[in-house]
Design a protein around this nucleic acid. Structure first.
Ligand code: FES
Ligand code: FES
Lengths: 141, 141
DNA sequence: AGATAAAAGGACTTTTTTATCCTTTATACA
DNA sequence: TGTATAAAGGATAAAAAAGTCCTTTTATCT
């Protein structure tokens, strides 16, 4: 479903949402260690997210990554689309050129339900709210 | 979700279910042309499916691929697992080492429901039955 | 101003996936 | 028995994804 880069991106954003803030920025090294993820690869991913204004960063000593108030209001859908492109949630599961309920492939019904369920949650839940649930329910990232 | 090879495999198997039989075998070339899929790559995939007894084949003139009565009773789940390995339907969507409802990741609930829906359909529907539906509803492959 | 720390950016390497080609084996049929 | 046909298998090539390293830029603090 998601590329490796996208998985790391989601986890990193959620980790930032839970553990960082404007006052407490986190460096790549810390995040990579916490998530057990390749450091330099994660650096690239954070760069890309930062360029697209999905996370915030500061250079220099006491610099690092965090989520601004604006960032916290975005959704994971934005993160996913930033990493894997805009078609992740529209593509036919069999790779056929178009996915449509009018002219469905044999797996469309189930695949569409799955995809839309996920899509809906990712789209309509703010990263900040998701982070609160993670803390409340002590979920792993 | 599925690798390219797996997508081609599913489509090829369904195409065989609809268009081939013991009496009317199809060659790689025909299938590749019908599905608009790279010929040599498809050949490899059909080989692998054949080795794992998910499809049947005959060499020589008037040879080709088809589904035996046994093959038709199998499910697409077997095809998928043959191509992408046994963990496709058990892996955490975020790539965490285990997926479990007891200790879920933040996306588990939606991801699990979706995945299981698909898994269930692929597992409990025989390829032959699926093929009948495809013909009845004139679905694209 | 100088030293230091951390992200940003560019270039590169490795691994995996996708795709192609060539040789061998089996089989049908004349 | 010989020829043609098609899958099986092995080896390789090309492309994409994952991962690493080095240099530059920006900021902090003394
Ligand atoms: S048409 Fe294939 S998933 Fe919708
Ligand atoms: S724990 Fe991540 S999908 Fe189940």
């Amino acid at each position: 479903m998601f590329s490796q880069a996208c998985k790391y991106a989601i986890r990193a954003v959620l980790y930032l949402a839970v553990h960082a803030s404007k006052g407490k920025k986190l460096g790549v090294k810390e995040i990579a260690a916490a998530l057990d993820v390749p450091k330099y690869f994660l650096a690239k991913i954070l760069q890309q997210l930062s360029r697209n204004n999905l996370i915030s960063s500061a250079k220099g000593p006491s610099g690092g990554f965090y989520l601004s108030e604006k960032n916290v209001e975005a959704s994971l859908k934005d993160v996913v689309e930033c990493m894997d492109g805009p078609d992740v949630f529209n593509a036919c599961i069999l790779g056929l050129p178009v996915c449509s309920s009018e002219n469905p492939c044999p797996l469309h019904i189930q695949a569409f339900a799955y995809r839309e369920g996920l899509h809906y949650q990712l789209k309509h839940q703010a990263i900040g709210d998701l982070a609160k649930r993670i803390e409340r329910e002590e979920q792993k990232i």
